[in-house]
């Protein structure tokens, strides 16, 4: 493992370094880690902030949207002065203020096939914090093809869903093995509503799993999907199964454009 922690990093991270599952070796792993976050909305705000605070060495933020007044209840890194500014840039500025020992890269663009070819490289983990099915299915397909671990989180109303897809655990399938397809007209935050506190809970689960994965721990979410119900506090962990005919990860996946 290259590069030691500086004295300031030892002080900054002292509380988490005490954890048996973390220690100096784990902190060095985080420092070396490169994470891509797709979507700088509610999930992206909280997840990115927790990863920045934890000391993940490089965070790349991607979003083509700008901050609106109706975002502020749940997209907690943004302030009134950020309205109309690009979310990726505003969030990056906040993260740099939070932790100047890490590198933050901001990309004001939508995730699509052409940008997948440029950007889905050399990341240790990709976080899906997007707000639409088109991006979710494309990101899943492209991460499977590029053999990049993907931690997918979504939230609506008071409910969330969280699953991890990794090259090493592909026998448990991918996002598209769980949901064959879905329509963006069905539900999103604009037409269904969402509780900011539920968003923060789901994003915190996502960040927690991301950190544990980067520390080198095995995640149950690599072979399951977690359904988070913040109304009943009754979460459910369901075992996944690979669909051998899946267009993203199945035996015919060569039909998909690989990166």
């Amino acid at each position: 493992m290259a590069e030691a922690l500086s004295d300031r990093e030892f002080i900054r991270y002292s509380r988490q370094l005490m954890l048996d599952q973390w220690q100096e070796e784990g902190q060095l792993r985080l420092k070396q880690a490169k994470v891509l976050i797709i979507g700088c909305g509610g999930l992206g705000n909280t997840a990115a902030s927790l990863l920045a605070g934890a000391g993940v060495g490089q965070l790349t933020l991607m979003d083509d949207d700008s901050v609106e007044l109706s975002n502020l209840p749940r997209q907690i890194s943004y302030e009134m002065d950020d309205i109309d500014n690009a979310k990726a840039f505003a969030l990056a500025n906040r993260l740099r203020e939070q932790n100047d020992d890490i590198e933050v890269i901001a990309l004001k663009q939508r995730f699509d096939l052409s940008c997948a070819k440029h950007h889905l490289i050399k990341f240790d983990l990709v976080l899906d914090c997007s707000d639409n099915f088109t991006t979710r299915f494309l990101l899943n397909q492209q991460c499977v093809a590029a053999q990049l671990p993907l931690l997918s989180a979504s939230v609506i109303g008071w409910h969330g869903q969280l699953l991890m897809i990794t090259p090493k655990t592909l026998e448990y399938g991918c996002y598209q093995c769980v949901f064959a397809t879905a329509d963006d007209q069905v539900s999103n935050c604009n037409n269904s509503g969402v509780a900011g506190s539920a968003v923060a809970i789901v994003a915190s689960y996502q960040a927690n799993e991301a950190i544990r994965f980067l520390l080198g721990h095995v995640s149950a979410l690599s072979q399951s999907i977690l359904l988070i119900d913040t109304l009943s506090a009754n979460n459910q962990l369901l075992q996944r199964t690979r669909n051998i005919d899946c267009v993203a990860c199945g035996d015919n996946r060569s039909m998909i454009d690989a990166v």
Partner: peptide
């Protein structure tokens, strides 16, 4: 097509 089903906590592919 946008629905998933599990039996006794084990997802059944569509």
């Amino acid at each position: 097509v946008a629905v998933a089903v599990a039996i006794d906590n084990q997802i059944v592919t569509q």
